[in-house]
Design a protein around this nucleic acid. Structure first.
Lengths: 338, 338
DNA sequence: CTGAAAGCGCTAACAA
DNA sequence: TTGTTAGCGCTTTCAG
């Protein structure tokens, strides 16, 4: 492999400034030093275009000034927003973020986490694909702080930042019921272990309390949401389905597309509420009523919590923060245009 | 700061296996070794739950098995898709990716790039916020491979993966003209230096060739796209504006929202073509005609190019790949529903 | 307040 | 094939 150009080292700086290595190191780390000396050292650094080698620093100091962030899919707007927010906090703390997308695969996730431990990351923000503890075990046993968001990890005592999935869906379901809809179909994916089951639970209990029959269409993978399936679900049983509650953004997309293919019109024809908001949601006709998750807020809080731990607070009991969602009533639920 | 649990080192493994450090190192690096010895070493590794310290490896080998990726905004769907794709390639090569969002700020970008050099990244994928060469100088002078995508860096000889912005906009403009529209307003942001100017150029030359008056509304920042501005632009001059061409995704969002506020209906009232596609674009009424960029493909190719360089091919002349966009004719341009 | 020396965990010359 | 000996660039005892 090609040999990389050398780049000045701290030793170069020291000799250039006529001081010892240690003194140069002090200056680099803002440790008190005679002002005169400091100036000389800084001058030398500038002249040599010195850039500290973070790898070497980390090796000795057993810290890498990097955190890991693992999410199922970088391209998903929810995770992307969380990443952007977390990254900003990290940057403020002079940390970088190593990001990996697990693709929702528990095995991939595990191997990525191990690789991050090997890179000596100082902390981890994780949106778990797998809710079993053994995925984060390598972090816990290495005593590296972990904050999970979106979903918890069973039995792992880590900080967590979640949203009130169940309450949010309850509210949406009640809203639909209050409009007089009786056959309300919930569509989602069961692969999202925790979030999926919480949302389904919110729907189911609300329907039960209203003595309405619960009808759910849960798929393992969004690609299973085909026109045929949806059509069959809509046509089935006595009477017709009044309303649909989609349990996550991807499902909303799929349902919207399929409904259009089927020639059904959201609004007059069938009501719809989506878990997850989109930028275009209020440009659709009718404007989409949604449950909005505070994605950026989740990322921000997760990062803040993590840095609180990294920067000293190692032993405090774990915090479990649950954020409110926002129920944005627009039109697709049956409410009329303002 | 809390002292982290030790974690087995290669030396531990070696003594546990009764071999020398170097032999253990050989096994770790898959260098030929007596099968018998290898087995013992591997057993020791497993027993001690050994995880190589990548920092130490990198320090010696002047490679970090990490690449940097810098984009303006992680939350932007275009960049998010590129990241996801690039990350997959990196992962295949057993590399991790350190991601930073520059926020479109040239100064932030510069400091982030320097920090990446200090972390000894083995390569960089960059969607430049700043088209001046000095942003990537620190990489070039350190002889670290760089691939830019979406926008080039002036005067820097790096591999680049771009799209045919100009041709794409020309095609869209011609399409609008062929529908008989005469007053076609182009809206975009001038801050996206290269992409912005290419797209405007594609529009302008096409309009000129058709002997039509070019009208552009270019803002520095999307927040400037207020209802008032758009309204004024639409009302101005003799006759009315027939069609709008939005020059990037953010602008499309803003324009769509504003149009709705103004009570104007895309389609019958005014035609619209968007540069950049959205998932919901074909659920809108009318379905949005768009220029789609191959975002994931850009990320994938950028990463592949980068690894080609990292893994040996250091001196080949730079490649400049330009990808085609896809013109998706739906309805908002005036074409009628199938 | 400063300097010399000893590593961090690993790889890479060289020997053996 | 294997082991020995140096470092990579930095931080950090421990003296001066």
């Amino acid at each position: 492999m090609h040999k990389r150009m050398a780049g000045a080292t701290l030793a170069d700086v020291a000799s250039r400034a006529g001081v010892s290595l240690k003194t140069a190191s002090r200056v680099l780390n803002n440790v008190p030093v005679a002002p005169e000396t400091a100036k000389k050292v800084r001058a030398a650094m500038a002249r040599l275009d010195y850039k500290p080698n973070e790898l070497a620093r980390g090796l000795k100091g057993r810290r890498s000034a990097a955190i890991g962030m693992v999410v199922p899919n970088l391209a998903d707007p929810f995770h992307a927003a969380a990443m952007q927010a977390a990254q900003e906090i990290a940057h403020k703390n002079k940390y970088v973020v190593i990001i990996t997308g697990s693709g929702g695969d528990a095995e991939a996730e595990r191997s990525q986490l191990e690789s991050l431990v090997g890179r000596q990351v100082d902390g981890l923000i994780l949106a778990p694909s797998d809710n079993r503890i053994n995925t984060v075990e390598c972090f816990l046993s290495a005593n590296i702080p972990v904050v999970v968001f979106d979903r918890p990890v069973n039995g792992a005592d880590t900080d967590s930042i979640l949203v009130r999935n169940r309450d949010a869906v309850r509210e949406a379901t009640e809203h639909l019921i209050s409009h007089g809809y009786r056959r309300i179909l919930a569509i989602g994916s069961r692969t999202n272990l925790y979030t999926g089951s919480e949302r389904v639970a919110g729907y189911a209990t609300t329907m039960a309390r209203a003595r309405l029959k619960e009808e759910t269409l849960l798929v393992d993978n969004e690609t299973e949401l085909t026109t045929g399936w949806i059509e069959k679900a809509l046509e089935s049983g006595p009477g017709k389905v009044d309303a649909i509650l989609t349990l996550n953004g991807t499902t909303t997309m799929a349902v919207l597309r399929i409904l259009r293919q089927l020639g059904r019109t959201v609004g007059p024809d069938i009501a719809l509420i989506s878990f997850d908001d989109f930028e275009l949601a209020e440009v659709l006709t009718p404007r989409l009523t949604v449950v909005r998750q505070p994605a950026a807020e989740l990322g921000r809080l997760a990062a803040e919590r993590l840095f609180a731990r990294i920067l000293g607070e190692r032993t405090t009991p774990c915090q479990h923060i649950t954020l409110q969602t926002t129920f944005l009533i627009r039109e697709s639920c049956g409410c009329k245009e303002r």
